[in-house]
Design a protein around this nucleic acid. Sequence first.
DNA 1: TTGCACTTGTT
DNA 2: ACAAGTGCA
Length: 470
Amino acid sequence: MSHQLVWFRNDLRVSDNPALFHACQQGKAVSAIYIATPQQWRKHDDADVKIDFWRRNLICLKSALAELHIELHFFQVDSYQQIPNLIETICQQWKIERLHFNHEYPINERLRDKNVIDSCRNIAVDYQNYHDQLLLPPSSVRTKTGTPFKVFTPFSKEAKQQLEQSLYLYPTPAPQNAINLAELVEEVQLNDIIWPNISQGIQRFWPAGEHHAFSRLVNFCQKTIGNYKQDRDIPSLGGTSRLSPYLASGIISVRQCWNASWQYCEPNDSVHVWQNELLWREFYKHVLIDYPYVSRHKPWKPLTEKIEWRHNEQELIAWQQGQTGFPLIDAAMRQLLARGWMHNRLRMVTAMFLSKHLLLDWRLGERWFMQHLIDGELAANNGGWQWSASTGTDSVPYFRIFNPVTQSKRFDPGGEFIRHYVPELAHLSDKEIHMPTTVNRPKGYPEPMVDLSVGRNRALATFKLLAEDL
DNA sequence: TTGCACTTGTT
DNA sequence: ACAAGTGCA
């Protein structure tokens, strides 16, 4: 018997799944496992809304696999350290020949996988792993001199040259030979795991299942993407793909997205803009792999470690709760809490407000985002925050500080987005809503927590000092 | 070494 | 008008 085992992690789908595909290629019985690690999730600040999304997608995955006659078994341990032992036990009791899984790139995951591989070697179990989260493998996008790209534009040019319009997608496997396995004592049911409670209201916005993800992708490419270039920056319009939660948890693959962008779209500027967004995701993942210290709470630009960020718990809380007195910021921060998601434009505006106008440590904001985003993903979240804080690769120049009121007038001109999430301001006119006057400000809505020009100049001075120190 | 190009601006 | 460099070929 040569029993194959697929370990599912951030790839909760059966279509275009390299590990699953290869396991099924062997013509032998295939089983699948998922290992819940609640304490590790807390350590990584994984959001409740994201953990619940995993749970809902695991239900879908279990039934999708059942149709292929593959059983998905659940296990639970506290942390990654216990996984090698658990996998040893599973492999021995089920007489596994080969373990298959798709790569994850953050350092804790790499260490976990290295230890699992060492265990496999100890007990003479074969293993294979595959690249899955990236369009192009690590280290494959390099400058002429062989170094990693530090700037997005040349990175994207090189990446585009390497990418075909149609990438190979691993087909969903055919049904496999069924196998009856003894239930292991370590095994749990999905319901035995303690999951966060998430309201149906939020769940409705993010339906689970790869079929849903795929139809969202096709629908986006056939309809929404046509106006993507103009609409994507207007939070009230819903002009973005809203695929990030599905990509982050591997409910859909980035290869499927890339192919769809060529296959289902009329080629135009908007399509290229969206493809660039996929490449930004790619860029930040490569940065994380090439500069692993960014996942250890270090800025990409070492010099910026010297910045003395202010400490102010109350200001942080005001920002987190959407009580800053700046309507667009507050609307955005409340959207994050209400939906587990925030529009991309607003992620930049709120991140820059925290790191520049308030001069609070960008890592506090990064953490808050991770704790609340359904699409929270280390590389993209870290890359985005370091971009806004001017500490990252190809980040915004420190003197180009978004003005939250100007941004509000430009990207929410009719105030629709603000009215939706900050209802106490809904009655204000289009002109007043971006920055209510003292007279117009309703009771209960806070005064602006910082004078924008004071905050701006404070940030400019801080960064300028840094440059002079050099 | 030089020249070119540079996501998301603000006052 | 201004902020001020920097990656890359």
